[in-house]
Amino acid sequence: MTFFEVKNLTFGYASGNGSVIRDFSLQMEQGEVVGLLGNSGCGKSTLLRLIAGLESPKSGRIQIDGKVLVDQGQFVEPEQRGIGMIFQDYALFPHLTVEQNILFGLHRLSIAERLVRLKEMLALVQLEGYGKRYPHELSGGQQQRVAFARALAPRPAILLMDEPFSNLDAELKTKIRDDLKRMLRAAKMTSILVTHDKADAETICNRIIRMTR
């Protein structure tokens, strides 16, 4: 059964003419990892922002688990969507520690549950003992894992990743990529990975979609 569906999505910036995305459709099963591959400027990051609710489409529909997120008449705000996202530069809050960053999205849980979840997440990303550090005290790879833990902690229905490897050097990248694959499988996460690197997508994803302008 289709878990996540994008139908005839069209988007254009208010200032520009023409559409960045035209009539885009996609269906995903639960637990599937889809890679969106394309050159810069083809609209793949915009697509993620539309799914996340950070931009609103001109037309089309997005729904998840039978619930409509956006169509002509409705718009669910990003904080109500239950979608996790890993940003290209991670956007870890610089004024909060690793623990506080991971706890940030857990405000709907009880305090006891929060701590349990925090422990689970630190274990999953193998960063036990780093909880009290600030983001700038971590290496690039560690930061990326914190971003992953933070996005995954509130148990999102779907995880979006926007070029999560672009800030890592080549050597580190292979290892992190394998780690990420392991963690995604372990969490059975339905996810979309945006990248311009074919190897990234081939390693991690079940299915690859090429986007062209």
Binding site: E77, E79, I83, A91, F104, G105, R150, A151
Partner: peptide, 25 residues
């Protein structure tokens, strides 16, 4: 805007985001 966007993705409303993320920054 990226910190605020990250906060909204983690389920915080615009107002809560403002007090927990924007204002300290």
């Amino acid at each position: 805007n990226r910190y605020s966007e990250a906060a909204r993705m983690l389920g915080m409303s615009m107002t809560r985001t403002f007090f927990k993320v924007d204002l300290p920054l």
